[in-house]
Simulated assay, not measured.
Amino acid sequence: MNKGNESSDLDFILLGLFPGFIFTVIFTIFVVALTAHLVMIFLIQADPQLHTPMYFLLSQLSIMDTLFICTTVPKLLVDMVSTERTISFVACGIQIFLYLTMIGSEFFLLGLIAYDCYVVVCNPLRYLVMMNHKVCLLLAAGAWFGGSLDGFLLSPITMNVLYCGSHSINHFCEIPAVLKLACADTSLYETLMYICCMFMLLIPISIISASYSLILLTVHHMRSAEGHKKAFTTCSSHLTVVSIFYGAAFYTYLLPQSFHMPEQDKVVSAFYTIVTPMLNPLIYSLRNKDVTGASRRIFMYCSSSQKVGMGSS
């Protein structure tokens, strides 16, 4: 195949992630996740009491998760009910770029959320100084920059590899699935990707581990049994989501290909592209008393505004 003439005209064949009868389940999860994130973004913007550093970071998480699931899941759902399951070379490259950017940004942001929790619990008196508005903007910008850097670095290299033979991808466009179709030797590129992923995983994992260790140590010295229980419950739920997300990324990008099997790849891909974005708002946000209180205030405000409008008419 002539790479210069044919690669850009190449269509990849998507074999699909699951049988058709799972369509309803995936569609339901997608709608629930999308609705939860949009509700969170709206509440955080609309309620002044949620204009805090923690909820600013959580709003960024909701934006990332919304873009993340919209990058792959809609195309997946269309392919599950379509007879023509193809994606163009250019569209595949765009999907890889957005996918890498969102997943990389979320890697860093989850680390920053853990750091925010550490400051709240361990340095409450200095919280507003350590997490002021300028610091929050810089942290969020750093997370987005780190993710986009990953996308800009790896996407062009992936799409400039020589592809030939079968163009069938086992699920959606992500680097390991696409590289399996390469004709040329990709060992150097895979080493680069391995180093890049190690860097992007180790930094946030180190921050998360250190933050939650210090939180648990601080809580251990508290006398309140209720405080112990609440902190351990919160930390365990957070760490569960983080473990799923980072564990799936570790399996996909760092585990040697000899350990990969197609069916396992499908399940792992489903976890961090469909399940984790749904769990994030449920674990981090929607169960909080602040969020339920904001929902109640917004509802009461809308109800009273409607009554005033009806009375004046």
Score class of each variant (00 low, 15 high):
T86E: 03
V120F: 01
S62L: 02
V135E: 05
A33W: 00
P281R: 04
A46N: 07
L109A: 11
F199R: 13
G4Q: 14
T158Q: 11
E174I: 15
H51G: 00
D11S: 13
H220W: 13
F232D: 01
L10H: 07
I13F: 09
I26T: 06
D290W: 02
T35C: 06
I29D: 00
E106P: 02
M1C: 12
M261W: 05
L10K: 12
T66L: 08
K266G: 00
F250I: 15
M261A: 08
V242S: 05
V25A: 15
V219K: 11
D9E: 15
I169E: 06
G293H: 07
G20Q: 11
S62R: 03
M278E: 06
P277Q: 02
M80D: 04
I203F: 06
H221V: 07
Y251F: 12
N132C: 08
M261K: 06
T72S: 12
V291E: 00
T35H: 04
P124V: 11
I69H: 06
L76D: 03
A46F: 09
C122V: 15
P19L: 01
S303L: 13
Y99R: 08
C173Y: 08
I69P: 08
H167E: 01
V268K: 02
G311W: 13
M193T: 13
P156D: 10
N5L: 15
L217C: 05
F89D: 09
L254V: 10
V32K: 01
S166A: 02
I244E: 10
S8Q: 14
V32Q: 06
Q264A: 14
T158C: 15
P124A: 10
L57W: 02
F56M: 09
S285E: 03
N170R: 11
Y212E: 00
Y115D: 08
L38T: 09
Q257L: 12
L202G: 08
C70Y: 07
I87P: 00
I44E: 03
F23N: 06
L214M: 04
V25E: 07
Y251R: 06
F152R: 02
M222P: 01
P256R: 12
T24Y: 13
I94P: 03
W144C: 12
S206P: 03
F145M: 14
L17G: 09
M261Y: 08
K3D: 08
F107T: 05
S224H: 01
Q49L: 05
M102G: 08
R296L: 15
S105D: 08
Y163I: 00
P53F: 11
V25Q: 09
A294Y: 01
F259G: 07
L128N: 15
L279D: 04
N170F: 01
L153E: 07
F152D: 01
H228K: 09
M159T: 14
F259P: 00
P204T: 04
Y253P: 11
M200C: 05
K75T: 15
L201M: 13
L153S: 10
S82Q: 03
F68K: 03
H37W: 01
F250Y: 15
M64V: 14
M278Y: 07
